[in-house]
Design a binder for these strands. Structure first.
Lengths: 338, 338
DNA sequence: TTGTACGCGTTATCAT
DNA sequence: ATGATAACGCGTACAA
């Protein structure tokens, strides 16, 4: 059984292809009776319009592309939920591409979008990305694009972020208030602006409290979790004074838990830990993890909304449409004072 | 700047469209020099072939559709990782659709696939699904389809599952060995075959130990976590003898943790808990959760491999290509004997 | 080795 | 109210 097309419907009904097409799109110029006949047969034969023919003709793909580092990550999977919801509301389809934090792969993916496969793009940068020329080329082609979370500052488009500087400051402040004086900061990447902002918040908070940041207490995580745990263990051993850890991403907090356990450091008695995290069950950890939770779902949704506003109204996206949402610090036992 | 197409390249080079087309596909009938010229200009102008025109012409979309209940779920996000990897290896694109466990939405999505938008489908059923006719229609159209995890037994196609009966038996056995005599079983849905198998394993294990299963100890979870926690609390209160919980999915285990905490039941002293789960950090929970971990990534990968074998060789998928992978019981403190 | 012509399925324009 | 026709961009059979 082959896919049914307009021609077959037309033949069956002794109508022209164009009449059938119009009947199906509920055009006002078609009589009610023909409409009914056509639509009934279409339903009966399970007719589905060929989306590629339609895309070719209309120069619209009804598809958006989502480019993210990983999907097995609470933040991104929640964001996808938000994106998918808005896409469905607009009868759009969602193509997912994973960069695995590899700039080269990201470039390949984005380059492909010059083909017209998607009407718009939602992207969160690979940690490695330093050269943004692949994105610029898309801008020249006027393909609307919204960045979320791991944004590219330089681009004249909308970006959905959270108040990373403030959160970084607040997290550090929280540890200081809890009595920590030697706070390590674990970051993801040297290149991401959100990482830089969180770092700057950390540095400023320390200095505001009369403390001199110690570069030895900064650790760049890798993509390998075992390696990260080892690095953190070494950090803790080489700097026994460390009494607080501020992790920029969830996995680094988890590696810190394992490192502490391995070294016999108690949380929060010996080391207090706070982390950016969208772990739903932070409360069920041992000990419960104090988190800065980003509104991941809302970020995905807002990014998608802005994108669709542009696609549907055929207007360029302006940087002024950017939004900065608020993260929430949720205090739990991992930073409790004894 | 408009998307570049073959016509423009042809004009620029004083060649015909077909020559350019052939040069780009590295056809043997084109001279090396023209090929070089064409390819250079194509690169220079950032030419990307229009995938929709190509799909229309070739009747191939180079796209697969993935239909799953949720993405914010460790099992499914890991599976997507596996799927995406295989898709990328084959230069295919991945469309993601979420059913949110709603059979109606699933039917709508699947129905749309009759349009030819995808060359193949990977699906994991919505918990609610009872009527499978939407899938049958696709089979009539010979669109290759592989089910994974939440499979539909009735279909003559490949299914990737885990040894759910054995795991259900083993999980129950594990609790029995730990001394439990009143074991509750929390399931997702009455309709999913994997749920039925796990349940059967549970029932058989009980009976093999001379215990009579008590229907009052079976609880069907909902899609609402708070509601689930309430239900579990009621279950525990109405059946104070319960000393073991076997959860069929991770969220029900987490709700059980919260329920126990709320009621002051200690884990594992008062109640031991075991659950199907792909939580990476089960070990960091309080107490660490004994899990049956499914090879989610591998399942996605294998399902995708089978699908691509069919797509690329243009052969139907046979039920004999089905695979049953092994889950692993990882014993942790939540089922420890005191 | 290259060019011409057609068709994939749909939609939009122009006629009747 | 309906039909004929062209075009979207690409790939291929056939011609030259």
């Amino acid at each position: 059984m082959n896919p049914v097309n307009l021609k077959q419907l037309a033949q069956e009904l002794n109508l022209s292809v164009s009449t059938v097409s119009r009947a199906l799109s509920d055009s006002y110029e078609i009589s009610a009776t023909t409409k009914a006949k056509v639509q009934q047969l279409a339903r009966q034969l399970g007719y589905e319009p060929n989306p590629y023919a339609s895309s070719l003709r209309r120069q619209k793909s009804k598809t958006i592309g989502v480019v993210i580092p990983e999907v097995a990550n609470n933040f991104f999977s929640l964001a996808i939920n938000g994106i998918e919801e808005v896409a469905r509301e607009n009868n759009y389809h969602v193509l997912i591409y994973l960069t695995h934090d590899d700039a080269q792969q990201e470039a390949t993916i984005v380059q492909h979008f010059a083909s017209g496969r998607v009407d718009g793009i939602l992207a969160s940068l690979a940690g490695e990305t330093q050269d943004f020329s692949h994105f610029s080329k898309l801008q020249e082609r006027h393909i609307p694009m919204v960045f979320f979370d791991r944004v590219c500052e330089e681009f004249a488009t909308a970006k959905i972020t959270t108040d990373d500087y403030r959160s970084g400051y607040q997290a550090t402040q929280h540890l200081l208030d809890a009595g920590c004086r030697h706070i390590a900061h674990l970051l993801i990447s040297d290149h991401l602006s959100i990482g830089q902002k969180r770092l700057q918040g950390y540095l400023d908070a320390l200095q505001a409290h009369g403390l001199t940041p110690d570069p030895a207490l900064l650790l760049r995580g890798t993509s390998n979790k075992d390696r990260n745990q080892t690095l953190i263990q070494e950090l803790l051993q080489q700097n026994p004074a460390i009494d607080g850890i501020f992790a920029s991403v969830e996995t680094l907090a988890m590696s810190s838990y394992l490192a502490c356990r391995h070294l016999g450091r108690r949380i929060p008695e010996d080391v207090k830990i706070i982390s950016f995290s969208n772990l739903e069950i932070a409360d069920l950890l041992d000990p419960p993890l104090t988190t800065i939770a980003q509104p991941a779902y809302e970020m995905g949704r807002e990014a998608a909304r802005i994108l669709f506003k542009s696609i549907l109204k055929n207007r360029p996206i302006l940087p002024t449409q950017s939004q900065e949402l608020k993260s929430t610090l949720i205090q739990r036992k991992s930073t409790a004072t004894t």
